[in-house]
């Protein structure tokens, strides 16, 4: 493939990425949220691979592979296992309903494109075009974290944020040094496992995983 068509492909993938993040916000079912997250991560690893191929950066190839293994296979599986064990299927409970959160999401996307419009283009290191998408993903992750009631979807929002930061890293700087990239992925994996353990503890102590119920500590 020519370098030109790869650039087009990467942009197309970027748009799909934004759509899948909206999918997480729009779907009322937890299993659908997890699938959308897996899809999001899959697109992320494709983008990484395309950039690695286009610029002949082998360390990005490793990042792409690890992203695929960890975020497309391992983490969604962990999530499915947790949701099966604690028996949460529906995630309708959110502080604001789905149409309004979609509306908020669209506003956030506009904001991220607007604030980065002034950023300089055509710098030495490619793709400033991805900056608004990365920032929008971080914002949408925060939106999921703040509007959903279940502890497990808060973690999903956190992961969405992390994907946004990863996208920013690979498109702005062609990825951080491999050592750092590996360390971040390791932290993410351990973090998810720890949070999973705590979700079980919350369920047995509070008889549910609504973060609303956690009101023992105040002031």
């Amino acid at each position: 493939m020519s370098s030109e068509s790869i650039v087009h492909l990467v942009h197309f993938l970027g748009m799909l990425l934004l759509i899948t993040s909206l999918g997480i916000i729009a779907s009322p079912l937890l299993s659908a949220c997890i699938r959308f997250y897996a899809m999001h991560s899959f697109l992320l690893s494709l983008i990484t691979l395309a950039i690695a191929y286009n610029h002949h950066l082998w360390h990005l190839g490793i990042s792409a592979l690890l992203t695929f293994l960890l975020k497309v296979i391992a983490i969604p599986q962990i999530f499915f296992a947790i949701s099966r064990k604690i028996g949460v299927r529906k995630e309708v409970e959110s502080y604001i309903n789905i149409p309004s959160s979609l509306f908020l999401a669209v506003i956030l996307i506009f904001v991220s494109f607007y604030v980065t419009a002034g950023a300089k283009t055509g710098s030495a290191l490619s793709s400033w075009e991805f900056l608004p998408i990365a920032i929008a993903t971080v914002f949408l992750g925060m939106l999921v974290m703040t509007t959903r009631k279940k502890a497990i979807t808060q973690v999903l929002g956190l992961l969405l944020m992390e994907n946004g930061l990863f996208l920013m890293g690979i498109t702005m700087t062609f990825g951080m040094p491999l050592l750092v990239e590996l360390g971040i992925l390791f932290d993410v994996l351990v973090g998810i496992i720890m949070m999973g353990i705590f979700i079980f503890k919350i369920r047995s102590a509070f008889e549910g995983i609504d973060v609303d119920d956690m009101t023992v500590l105040k002031g």
């Binding site: 974290m145 502890a151 808060q154 973690v155 956190l158 973090g191 720890m194 949070m195 705590f198 503890k201 919350i202 102590a205 509070f206 973060v211 956690m214 023992v216 500590l217």
Partner: peptide, 10 residues
Amino acid sequence: SIEAAWKYLI
């Protein structure tokens, strides 16, 4: 303690 640890973590 679980509540405190969860808030801390998140």
